[in-house]
């Protein structure tokens, strides 16, 4: 489902010095896998996720996700890829404040080529139901708790029925109990066949994953199967 070979990512600092964040990284994730990526702060976890999800194009190497080879795609084709094949969940939710929960979930529909209408609205309600927020669909983000906001964000990532979910510390801003609820949602989604790749500092999250990879000096090291 995810294949990355020889991935390298350089950042050029303001002083002109280059920082090599990813350095010849290889990654293979099969369909339906639940993989956690751990590593110290600044090791390049977010960078890896952005490259794999088609948000960052300044890398060297080969990336194939859900059968799509990302290298050389135009900006519009990459946008379509992000819209159709993958979903992102971020640590700080990133909901659009003046849109309701359901409208936030529908956001991908605006970029799918059609005009969002009743069908998209029903799909949003269905997805919100799936993440356990069916009754709060008309609330504004400010009227929702942190856990609820993250559920909306997950709903948004699921809206276009992606094959892969990229999550960047999805429980990082949540308390333990709420974080556990979110972990349970990911586990449920994974059991339904979704491939989940999540960056995490959370012990319980990596425990839920079938595989844990450590990002260290620009490469991934297998941590062995979870207990």
């Amino acid at each position: 489902m995810i294949t990355a070979r020889g991935l390298s990512r350089l950042y050029v600092d303001n002083d002109g010095s280059a920082v090599r964040v990813l350095d010849g990284l290889d990654l293979f994730v099969g369909p339906g896998e639940f993989v956690a990526i751990v590593g110290p702060s600044g090791s390049g976890k977010s960078t890896l996720l952005h490259v794999l999800g088609g948000l960052d194009v300044h890398y060297r190497g080969e990336v194939i996700v859900d059968g799509v080879t990302l290298g050389g795609l135009s900006d519009a084709a990459l946008a379509r890829f992000r819209n159709q094949h993958v979903g992102f969940v971020f640590q700080s939710f990133h909901l659009i404040p003046n849109l309701s929960a359901a409208e936030n979930v529908m956001l991908p529909a605006f970029f799918g080529g059609g005009t969002p209408g009743g069908k998209e609205r029903r799909r949003a309600e269905e997805v919100l139901e799936r993440v356990g927020l069916g009754r709060k669909r008309d609330r504004a983000p400010t009227q929702l708790s942190g856990g609820e906001r993250q559920r909306v964000a997950i709903g948004r990532a699921l809206f276009c029925r992606p094959k892969v979910l990229f999550c960047d510390e999805p429980t990082g801003n949540l308390d333990a109990a709420t974080g556990q609820e979110i972990i349970d949602i990911f586990r449920g989604l994974n059991q339904d066949g979704l491939t989940v790749l999540t960056v995490t500092h959370e012990e319980r999250m990596s425990a839920a994953a079938a595989r844990v990879l450590r990002l260290c000096e620009g490469r991934l090291v297998e941590e062995g199967a979870s207990r």
């Binding site: 900006d75 946008a79 159709q84 992102f88 990133h94 659009i96 956001l107 991908p108 605006f110 276009c160």
Partner: peptide, 16 residues
Amino acid sequence: AKEIGVMRAVGASRAD
């Protein structure tokens, strides 16, 4: 900026 980033993440191109 964040909102624009989110739109990009869910499928907006630069042209969009």
